[in-house]
């Protein structure tokens, strides 16, 4: 465990030194502040706009951090062969993968916490703060932990450009899975196409179930059961991806 933590610690230290991280953080904070300006120019509940844009900023920032910092760090390790130096110590390949993931997950956690506090402060200032906001931030964090696992998974066998593309695709597909259920309903019952669409729905990760942003923004109560199941579902996906990544990396020649 100490080796995993050592790798996680060094990954977090490297991510914190990454300039892109600060650029993205400033961008997300600016987006949140801009939501206040936007709400003044819009007819309707300005607090909802602040919450909606704020939560979206956290989600997009997390995705970009997973893409640029996560994929970038792993690529640099492979390209510059620092991975070989690490693995020349008594470190198992799976320990390396899990250590890298934990370091990136810690980076995502810090980002989400910083932006979450900023958003909570802004809603408090507008008098629209509710504790439910933290439920939405928590679910975004869980989703980002899954996206980071996808970034590590693709980086373990693919080039950075493809890793970034595949990770983005997982994010988009995960949020569009509901479209598959709609399509399934429109296809004739018992048809092959319907079975294929149903099969696809089952094997693709569904991120919409855990996305409670809209509910929180509109003040609709969210049951604890949904939060628990969505958390278990997304973390199980993350664990499975990391396991496959570790297996794929286990016998990979590091030329």
């Amino acid at each position: 465990m100490s080796r995993i933590l050592a790798i996680a610690h060094s990954t977090l230290a490297e991510a914190i030194r990454h300039r892109v991280l600060y650029l993205l953080l400033v961008f997300a904070a600016a987006l949140m502040l801009f939501s206040r300006v936007l709400s003044m120019m819009t007819v309707g509940d300005d607090a909802k706009i602040v919450k909606d844009l704020g939560l979206s900023a956290i989600s997009v920032l997390g995705l970009l951090v997973a893409l640029f910092v996560g994929v970038g760090i792993l690529f640099r390790e492979m390209e510059r062969r620092t991975v070989q130096v690490t693995l020349s110590a008594p470190v198992a390949r799976w320990e390396y993968i899990f250590g890298k993931y934990l370091g990136l997950a810690a980076t995502i956690t810090i980002n989400t916490a910083v932006l979450g506090l900023l958003l909570a402060g802004m809603t408090l200032w507008r008098g629209a703060y509710t504790h439910c906001l933290w439920a939405a931030i928590f679910m975004l964090w869980i989703e980002l932990l899954f996206i980071t696992a996808a970034a590590v998974f693709f980086s373990s066998f693919s080039t950075p450009i493809f890793s970034a593309l595949f990770t983005s695709a997982v994010y988009v597909v995960g949020h569009l899975c509901w479209a598959l259920t709609l399509l399934e309903q429109k296809l004739p019952a018992g048809s092959v196409a319907r079975e294929v669409v149903h099969g696809l729905y089952l094997v693709l990760p569904d991120l919409e179930y855990g996305d409670i942003r809209a509910l929180v923004v509109h003040g609709v109560p969210v049951g604890l059961e949904r939060i628990v199941w969505a958390t278990v579902y997304e973390l199980a996906w993350a664990g499975m991806l990391l396991l496959i990544a570790a297996l794929a990396f286990r016998r990979r020649d590091l030329v």
Binding site: E14, R81, T82, V85, P90
Partner: peptide, 17 residues
């Protein structure tokens, strides 16, 4: 991995962070 517990390695062009 345990085989490397008492082994030290210096690579050719050290590629350290």
């Amino acid at each position: 991995p345990a085989s490397r517990a008492e082994v030290g390695f210096l690579p050719e062009s050290p590629y350290f962070p």
